[in-house]
Design a protein around this nucleic acid. Sequence first.
DNA 1: GTCTATAAGTCGATAGAC
DNA 2: GTCTATCGACTTATAGAC
Lengths: 199, 199
Amino acid sequence: MTRRGAYAKGIAKREEILTTALEVVAAHGYRRASVRELADAVGLSAAGLLHYFDSKEELFTAILRKRDEHDQTAYGTDGAGLDMLLTVIRHNATVPGLVQLYAQLAVEAVDPAHPAHGFFRERTDGLQEHFRAAVVRAQENGELRGDLDPAWVATSVQALSDGLQSMWLLDPAIDMAAHIERFLDALRPGAHPQGGTAS
Amino acid sequence: MTRRGAYAKGIAKREEILTTALEVVAAHGYRRASVRELADAVGLSAAGLLHYFDSKEELFTAILRKRDEHDQTAYGTDGAGLDMLLTVIRHNATVPGLVQLYAQLAVEAVDPAHPAHGFFRERTDGLQEHFRAAVVRAQENGELRGDLDPAWVATSVQALSDGLQSMWLLDPAIDMAAHIERFLDALRPGAHPQGGTAS
DNA sequence: GTCTATAAGTCGATAGAC
DNA sequence: GTCTATCGACTTATAGAC
């Protein structure tokens, strides 16, 4: 915003840092969400890292934003609504460090004064609208029961995903995607025989 | 061990501290889970508080244990399985500080080396078994569809509760109990007309 | 039993050398 | 643009006075 001459280069370096941070957090996880730890991970000093970000909160919010952006382009093949959720969840099961970072920042951002509060609010609103539209389509296609309130299904799907990720962090034996698939199966019209156990 | 009088008194003071901590956290919430902050809240210095607890983690784990204990005696009228969950969730909606403390410690305890890790693992296992048995009873009474895997329903109910609490912390307009009721309604046998919207 | 004082460490963030 | 060095404000935890 305030930089002029090195604007393009600064932006590029910022993106490079975020991409590296995503990879290294995904691969090695992290212990605390501290600037020093992340600086070591991306190969900079803490001061060097904060040259590109105004504060710790802005830095970690930017990482989560970059994650969403990546997931959107990687798995968001246009109208794929609830299928995309399953794809993302399956991907998340391979990057526990990112899931942990997300969960940790989400709790801290509960305070309306937290710099990331707006990010999570807007993210939730966007996901809710995305899911709600997908539920309406699924109902029109006869894949979901028509008597269900789309907004309720949307909220439930997101709450279930968040909750399953918390439980999975605690016990990685849980199959998150299978649980969500079963949830959607249980809401299909007609008879619903179930197979074996999930997790 | 050798000094009986002091032993009993120490235990009593411990309990008193925990009860006070529960009340004050429930009423005023808290910002960070720091010993200093809680010490102020219960009217002791940080050193005085740590006289009764070996470490910060043990202290906060004890608070959550006390919370479960309180909820169990207050709302756990024997066999009331899924009804108790709704009662507790409705109560939780009146104590955001406790919900926040729980969510924060749960994320930190994801690390198997964290002192509270065992607490959360055992708590999850206990709840799962409790819910699973309640689901089996509900199925026998015809209140839930018989084709559903009880273990799956149990996990889903807990994940949904956890996820709803996270979303509620972010946006207190959400009606957590109503969402869970709808979930259970959606899994009842026969037709399932739904009423208005749930937040 | 509870305090003050303080140790020993980490945190985010800044100043200034290069 | 990135570093070293450092600041001041925190943290948990301990030692010892009372």
